[in-house]
């Protein structure tokens, strides 16, 4: 009980410990879903949710009840996710192809010029497990910042401005990355599937 008195500085006089624990019961499920939606990674999401509550516990004094608990927790988690993507971007050592791998004086290099693709059933391509594994393989060959962009751009359907903010890249950089990644992805699919 003594410890409770020392900790018991919150507005309801409930021990902080108990209060944060009740938040864990109440919010961990939806925070996990959200983290998973953003990262598609179970373990990473669990760790980030855990870190969120630990940070909430440690930083409890900063929470003055001005925003809702839920909003505050989401804010902490959101920063953790953004940090994760930034780290991944820095860590990425794989280099994207440069445009000069594809163009000479602005013209397609002969070997790189797109070939006709024989696409028979576009709508059901992804149901073809062999195609799906080729596509996954091609995406995995791209550097980390492109996978972060894919995630933010397609899964969240975010505007490019927000993607740039979250990844701390300039809009010009964003275009260049998308363009180069698309060139690389296109080539990989052509070599491994459409031309094979």
């Amino acid at each position: 009980m003594k410890i409770w008195v020392i900790f018991g500085t919150d507005m309801n006089n409930t021990p902080v410990n108990d209060l944060v624990k009740s938040w864990v019961k109440q919010y961990s499920g939806e925070l996990y879903s959200w983290a998973f939606y953003k990262t598609s990674d179970k373990e990473l999401s669990e760790d980030m949710v855990q870190d969120t509550f630990v940070a909430a516990f440690k930083g409890f004094k900063e929470f003055k009840g001005e925003s809702e608990v839920k909003t505050w927790l989401y804010g902490i988690l959101k920063n953790k996710i953004a940090d994760h993507y930034r780290k991944e971007q820095r860590r990425s050592t794989v280099k994207l192809d440069t445009t000069s791998d594809y163009f000479v004086n602005g013209h397609w290099k002969e070997s790189e010029s797109p070939k006709e693709w024989a696409v028979t059933d576009e709508k059901h391509l992804l149901d073809d497990l062999k195609f799906k594994s080729v596509l996954d393989g091609c995406i995995n060959k791209l550097p980390g910042n492109w996978s972060a962009i894919i995630r933010l751009k397609f899964i969240d359907d975010k505007e490019s401005k927000i993607v740039c903010q979250e990844l701390e890249i300039t809009p010009t950089n964003y275009w260049q990355i998308i363009h180069r990644a698309k060139l690389q992805l296109r080539k990989c699919l052509e070599l491994n599937w459409f031309a094979a």
Binding site: N17, V20, K21, V24, K25, S28, G29, Y32, S33, F36, Y37, S40, K42, S45, E46, V49, Q50, F53, V54, F57, L125, L126, L135, I150, F154, I155
Partner: peptide
């Protein structure tokens, strides 16, 4: 294709009780 992959992505459930216990003991 990229949009479709995103749409098909299904959530991988976590064992929520286990996760909650883990977080609480961490706290």
């Amino acid at each position: 294709l990229a949009k479709e992959i995103a749409a098909r992505q299904v959530e991988v459930a976590t064992d929520l009780l286990f996760l909650q216990e883990r977080i609480i003991s961490k706290i």
